[in-house]
Amino acid sequence: MRVNIQDTGLWFLQSDIFATWKRRQNFFLWLYGIPGCDKQTLKKQAKGVWIVLDALDECRTRKGLPAEGLLLWTKELLNSEQRNVHLLVTSRQEQDITSGVTELAYIDDIVPIESDLITDDIRAYVRTRVSEDEGFKRWRARPDVQEEIETQLIEKADGM
């Protein structure tokens, strides 16, 4: 079950690299992270073409002959006549994607989703679930137990 917690993802949405991605034409940005770190944060915007490819590592057509696959398509799209393309790709950091992306993006346009960047998001998610989820209802009268549950879940999350 996906729960959207208010103000999560702000570490990215308020970053300089996100502002640059929105402003520059034909710009490729790659966010990568471990499974479960919630790489989905963007929505469609106006003016130009805004494309978000989420979970590129799960795409079956990304590999193949040099003339095939989604990475080739992204390269062709960025080099096409379309002059206002903003492309954001999320994935795990896998070798074939890393190799393909380094041909499309500058090193500063590759953003690792590190656990220290999303710790506040994880904390907000866990706190909301522990305080509002029916499965934790019996602990609502025990703030000390709720706090221990939150602490343990956050520590064990490891950026997921």
Rank of each mutant, 00 (worst) to 15 (best):
M1R: 11
M1G: 10
R2W: 14
V3R: 12
I5R: 11
I5T: 13
I5E: 04
Q6C: 08
T8N: 05
T8S: 03
G9V: 04
F12N: 03
F12G: 04
L13H: 03
S15N: 02
S15M: 02
D16W: 07
D16E: 13
D16F: 08
D16M: 10
D16V: 14
I17L: 01
I17P: 04
F18I: 07
T20H: 03
W21T: 01
W21I: 00
K22V: 01
K22G: 01
R24A: 07
R24E: 11
Q25T: 10
N26G: 03
N26H: 01
F27A: 05
W30F: 09
L31W: 12
L31I: 12
Y32V: 09
I34M: 11
P35V: 11
P35M: 08
G36E: 04
K39V: 03
Q40R: 15
T41V: 13
K44F: 08
Q45F: 08
Q45V: 05
V49E: 09
V52S: 15
V52C: 15
D57H: 07
E58K: 08
C59P: 00
R60E: 07
T61G: 06
R62F: 00
K63A: 04
L65N: 12
L65D: 11
A67N: 13
A67G: 12
E68P: 09
L70A: 13
L71T: 05
K75N: 14
K75L: 12
K75W: 14
E76V: 14
L77K: 09
L77Y: 06
S80K: 13
S80D: 10
Q82E: 15
T90L: 07
S91M: 01
Q93M: 07
E94S: 01
D96G: 00
S99T: 11
S99Y: 09
G100L: 00
T102S: 11
T102G: 06
T102R: 09
E103A: 11
E103I: 05
A105Y: 03
A105W: 02
A105D: 01
A105S: 03
Y106A: 13
I107E: 10
V111K: 08
E114L: 11
E114F: 08
E114G: 08
D116L: 11
D116S: 14
L117F: 13
I118P: 04
I118T: 10
D120H: 15
D120Q: 14
D121E: 03
R123N: 13
R127K: 15
R127I: 12
R129D: 05
V130K: 02
V130I: 08
S131I: 06
S131W: 05
S131Q: 10
D133I: 03
D133V: 04
D133Y: 08
E134G: 06
F136Q: 01
R138P: 00
W139I: 02
W139D: 00
A141I: 07
R142L: 03
R142H: 05
D144V: 03
V145H: 05
V145F: 05
E147W: 01
Q152P: 13
Q152D: 15
L153S: 03
K156M: 10
A157D: 01
A157E: 00
G159N: 03
